[in-house]
Design a protein around this nucleic acid. Structure first.
Lengths: 170, 170
DNA sequence: CCGTTGGGGTTCCTTCAAGGAACTTTGACG
DNA sequence: CGTCAAAGTTCCTTGAAGGAACCCCAACGG
């Protein structure tokens, strides 16, 4: 599918997309996390084509997100999350949180998350690691980082990018 | 592309994927957030095909993530994030955080995020809204929610799903 | 020692989406 | 009245997703 190579863009969203943005990839990671670690388990649970599953698993292994690990003398193996992959599960939790909030409808969320430390059922919240206050879309400013490539950034004071001098015919 | 309809699955990750999982969608949202709100701006910035951009924008509007808003008497309009869409930016921030950490390489992250409340540069952190402690992949248990459909869940004590009684030939 | 089974893939074919370029529409402006 | 610019359509080519069938390999079981 992806004829465009997002991995080469100077954007961490695009680069991350290059790793998990193909169809099925997040669901494969979800399943591996939940305990479906073998090819046939994944195939049966997801109903995905074997061909596509092979391609996705290879890609995820190449990207260092999954590890192929033998569990028998026979050529049998299971897929497990690497540290890199485990940190991707954070992303899945945020996706699940948004889906629970906006798409679950009458029936309510299919899965509840319980924080083991305090025992409470909760959706993850985004916080600033320094001050501990909420840190959402409108709580931040963006600045060029060391890996920047001259991409214009949002100016939160004017509400539009600094380079944008087109009139608004409001 | 997506021949499989993820939106019908009993999984908030799959449902969310159905909204933003097509190629380009996250980058479109990023651009709208950053201030590229018009068709030609998006097309020029992303280098996406006009046809595909039309399809994506329509889908995102249909899903209530973007709103098409006229800014002139002429048939001119711009796309803006709804509340639903603004909350999706949280997801983009987590994606960016992961990409910054694992894919930025030597050059470092292209963009830095500054928390306006405290002025610090930081990546978002996932916390439990109740106790305020970190809440990552391995800090939670999953339970069936009201919208569940009998899907087996992970048992964190055994490390694999409760229904899995196959031997491990380790 | 030969056939069977089961995990883990390939191969091949059809259908549909992505990419890209050219063309169209609409109202405003000089 | 001709032109311009925004915002799409149309059409064609290439390539990815879906699906079914097939293959390989190492135990077993008799």
């Amino acid at each position: 599918m992806q004829r465009t190579d997002f991995g080469k863009m100077t954007c961490s969203i695009a680069r991350t997309w290059d790793v998990i943005g193909e169809p099925w990839s997040p669901l494969i990671l979800r399943d591996v996390w939940v305990g479906f670690t073998r090819f046939d388990q994944l195939q049966a649970d997801l109903g995905i084509s074997r061909k596509v599953l092979t391609e996705r698993l290879n890609h995820l292994v190449d990207q260092g997100v999954l590890e192929r690990r033998p569990y028998d003398q026979r050529p049998r193996h299971e897929y497990v999350l690497t540290e890199k992959g485990t940190e991707l599960v954070d992303l899945l939790m945020v996706m699940a949180g948004w889906g629970d909030r906006w798409l679950a409808g009458e029936a309510g969320p299919p899965v509840l998350y319980r924080h083991r430390a305090c025992g409470e059922i909760a959706a993850v919240d985004l916080r600033c690691p320094h001050c501990g206050e909420p840190m959402h879309a409108n709580d931040i400013d963006m600045l060029p980082g060391p890996g920047a490539a001259g991409r214009p950034l949002r100016d939160h004071r004017s509400g539009r990018p600094p380079w944008d001098h087109t009139e608004r015919h409001t």
